[in-house]
Design a protein around this nucleic acid. Structure first.
Length: 469
RNA sequence: GGCGAGGUAGCAAAGUGGUAAUGCACUGGUCUGCAAAACCGGUAUGCGCGGGUUCAAUUCCCGCCCUCGCCUCCA
């Protein structure tokens, strides 16, 4: 059952098959490492992670490349503001990014190339583009891509009918001195000549000291690690134009290949029904959600709970719902383990009773639909009435899906080690004694006291548990 | 203005030419001294609004309203 995925370029769902028949090669635009990534950034990376997991669970190998943008306007500006070298500054934020990725259970890309470490590759590509008449140098030491030289420009973003050079933003930036040197306002920078505000961040090139333009790094590094033609290229929807449009132009003009065969774009996350912004106080990172008591696993669940091409409205309440949903899964897992006797990691090559969910997942990565199917199967499965073999089969299928979604089950609330303060423990013990002597009135008073203090009592046949409310 | 995505129960979110998955929340019951947990149920005659096509539309077509994104360096 091959995965079908919507392709931005053709605007159709197409089966994902590897060009070489065995390894699916894909490139994802990674983060600009100049600050903490927010949950909106992670929606894209998590969606790409599910994509990779579904491909791998389906039996194919993958070659996943995701770059680090560690030389651009923002990294240069903010490193200087922080009084740090570009290297030290971006290393810090790269490490933070990796920590967050691990917390979200994201598989590590096979290659994670750094832009600043591939400047020679970028220079070589610029030389080729100039040789072929697709780029030109200007007196200030910059090099621009000549958009008019590439007939297909605008195909991905479907802006071919638009007068690109009349864009509002470029009109506003026309006062920028180096904009004057371009032949056309639509042309974009491949190499930026050295400027005073860049400080020590400049490199030698045939056109003098300077630094690479942003779009170029992805073309140069995908060529280096994936070749002229590869299977899938992904990123957030905001990258369709101009970033991916420019990548296509650079790569197709610098090589004889067709570049990416399939474009995979993830729609933006919304927060509380609108845009996430620091001024609105809804700018969330894993760190500040953790300080509110939410785990990365809960964040991941919320991020995958909407289809990747539909705007997802993130709220704190949705994190509460995710927590309960994960608890429900963990209880199901526990019940099956008790019957099957299985412990530790459970692996499987097939979805078993969860075939419907697996099929849904392979239909354009319909994660919310698959979650619905999973709960449907959970709800109709009576673990206690299954034989050991049956329970084993269900558990294996369940974990096949969990692995495809990258979900790790939480420790059940009942089983989490909870420190009970001495005074609470004392009240609970008194209540138990009252209950044993069938003094229901006294027992209820004590239960209410505990409840007011934020604790609940859970009785069983021969004892009780004190749990946080 | 152009291009794109979306408007489904209190919240979140799938889906379909034949009358609406799922999670949370709420709620009835079984169980329990009472609870909790668990289990069995209930909760949109309705899918932005108005037309049209059809035996039948939430699902197709047309128009409108609203939200969000992009329109040169934002995942």
């Amino acid at each position: 059952m091959p995965l079908t995925l919507h392709d931005t370029l053709s605007r159709t769902a197409r089966a994902i098959t590897p060009l070489d028949g065995k390894t699916l090669r894909f490139y994802c635009c990674g983060p600009t490492v100049y600050g903490p990534a927010h949950i909106g950034n992670f929606r894209t990376f998590v969606a790409q992670d599910v994509f990779r997991r579904v491909i791998e669970q389906g039996g194919l190998a993958t070659l996943h490349v995701r770059n680090l943008t560690d030389v651009d306007d923002k990294t240069i500006r903010d490193s200087q503001k922080a009084g740090q070298s570009l290297t030290d500054f971006t290393r810090h934020w790269t490490e933070k990014f990796h920590t967050d990725c691990a917390a979200l259970n994201l598989l590590t890309p096979h290659v994670e190339p750094s832009a600043v470490a591939h400047i020679p590759h970028q220079i070589r590509m610029i030389e080729t583009l100039i040789e072929r008449g697709h780029a030109y140098a200007t007196p200030d030491g910059s090099v621009y891509f000549k958009v008019a030289s590439f007939a297909d420009y605008g195909r991905l973003s479907h802006l071919e009918d638009r007068e690109l050079k009349l864009g509002a933003s470029s009109a506003a930036s026309a006062t920028d001195s180096d904009e004057y040197t371009k032949d056309s306002l639509a042309d974009f920078a491949l190499w930026k000549g050295k400027k005073a505000e860049d400080g020590p961040n400049h490199w030698s090139s045939p056109w003098g000291e300077g630094r690479p333009g942003w779009h170029l790094e992805c073309s140069a590094m995908s060529l280096e690690y994936l070749g002229e033609d590869f299977d899938v290229h992904g990123g957030g929807v905001d990258l369709i134009f101009p970033h991916h449009e420019n990548e296509i132009a650079q790569s197709c003009c610098a090589t004889h290949g067709k570049f990416a065969r399939h474009w995979f774009h993830v729609t933006h996350l919304m927060v509380d029904g609108g845009k996430m912004a620091k001024t609105l106080g809804n700018f969330y990172t894993l760190e500040n959600l953790a300080s509110r008591g939410y785990s990365p696993a809960e964040v991941r669940y919320v991020l995958i709970s909407g289809h990747y091409r539909t705007p997802l409205n993130f709220t704190l309440h949705s994190l509460d719902a995710a927590r309960q949903a994960l608890q429900k899964m963990a209880k199901f897992d526990k019940a099956l383990r008790e019957v099957s006797g299985l412990t530790g990691d459970v692996t499987s090559d097939e979805p078993g009773p969860f075939a419907a969910a697996w099929e849904t997942l392979n239909d354009d990565l319909n994660v919310p639909g698959a979650l619905g199917d999973i709960f449907g199967t959970i709800n109709k499965t009576k673990a206690a009435s299954l034989s050991k073999d049956e329970a084993t089969a269900v558990l294996k299928g369940f974990h096949f899906l969990l692995r495809a979604l990258g979900l790790k089950l939480p420790v059940l609330v009942d089983e989490a080690a909870t420190e009970v303060p001495a005074d609470i423990a004392e009240l609970a013990e008194k209540r138990w004694e009252a209950k044993q002597s069938k003094d229901w009135a006294a027992a209820d008073v004590l239960r209410k006291e505990l409840d007011a203090a934020g604790w609940i009592i859970k009785d069983s046949k021969d004892g009780y548990q004190v749990l946080r409310k």
